[in-house]
Design a protein around this nucleic acid. Structure first.
Lengths: 189, 189
DNA sequence: CGAAAATTTGACATGACTCAACTGGAGTGG
DNA sequence: CCACTCCAGTTGAGTCATGTCAAATTTTCG
């Protein structure tokens, strides 16, 4: 777990074993069973979760009461409601484990301490945030500006194995399609 | 101009006059006339632009040849194609001044130098990137998951004065609606 | 095995787009 | 300062993609 975190960080910056030990000491491992929530709307997101393995989904409830999946999280991703975390305001999002998921958690206060002790972590999180931003913008460009059929094919093509782990109605939700219509699309392949 | 940058940075971190002088020495001011492009698709985005005043739009050309506006940029925003800038690959975006626009530009290599000389800039850009990510995600949540009418009303409500500076067909493009249909929506207010 | 959840099917409704034509201002040049 | 052009915005007719709702079918899992 520690080694995995180390490898992940070293993708972006050089990081000594000492730094790793220090950073790791601010974190708490946690195993979350399937279906359990790690964040609920209304709560303030005070913890960042680094996913060691497993699968999460982040979703909100729209004005009609439907769940809308915003993104999935897999190993080596951070699951957080950044808006809630940064601004310390109640979240509008839910984050739920779809499989048994192993996490490394770090509280906001511990993260700030870590920044003080290991300044290069600022660089690391700057880069990680940039990567996340790029991914989010690419999703928008890719998906939103296509019609449903294109979106579905791009999704399946890019994430073939992943699309097996998730029920179809969740993929529909993520792609902003009704489950019925997605079913239609699959038929007329 | 320097003072404006200083005030902007100090929103997020304390920043001495010396640091400012150093940082500023890596930057180049530039005035871009209306309609001019500061980035074109195909080019690699090697420069970050900080907008002192004026107005830009970032857009792409979709598969049908239509312009799709991704976002606007006003004073105290950074205009960049982050994906192109970070990964050094050809951009798919255009960035164009809609009004005469004053910019502070910094090249990627100068930015890296600045990070080395002023490590706390890492923190600054970490925070700025987080803010940007929050804004992008909020746009998605707000706009994309609503129907056109709702999107339009939210937009006008939140950006009333701004919506005056921009022709209607650009607002339509930003909201992902055809200009004809937006016209329809406005009528049935 | 049985109940609950997920997927499919079909009939119908509608939001949003396309295309073409028209209107009205805002330059621009003679 | 008029005539002309050009561009943004509006209108309307027709169409299509996608959504809604309700029911049937299949799959999953305790």
């Amino acid at each position: 777990m520690k080694a995995q975190l180390h490898a992940y960080i070293e993708r972006y910056i050089p990081f000594s074993q000492e730094d790793l030990d220090t950073f790791y000491s601010f974190m708490t491992p946690e195993i979350v069973p399937k279906k359990e929530f790690i964040l609920k709307a209304g709560d303030i997101c005070k913890i960042k979760f680094f996913i060691i393995n497993g699968l999460t989904r982040t979703f909100k409830i729209d004005s009609k009461g439907n769940e809308r999946i915003i993104h999935f999280g897999i190993e080596n991703w951070w699951a957080t409601d950044l808006e809630s975390f940064v601004l310390e305001k109640p979240s509008r999002l839910y984050i739920q484990a779809l499989e048994e998921t192993t996490l490394l958690t770090i509280s906001k206060s511990n993260l700030e301490k870590a920044f003080q002790v290991i300044p290069k972590l600022e660089r690391f999180f700057r880069i990680v945030t940039e990567k996340t931003l790029i991914a989010v913008e690419r999703k928008n460009e890719h998906y939103i500006k296509m019609n449903s059929k294109e979106r579905y094919y791009v999704f399946v093509q890019e994430l073939k194995d992943f699309s097996q782990r998730v029920p179809q109605y969740m993929i529909a939700s993520y792609l902003d399609i009704t489950p019925e219509y997605l079913s239609e699309l699959r038929k007329n392949k």
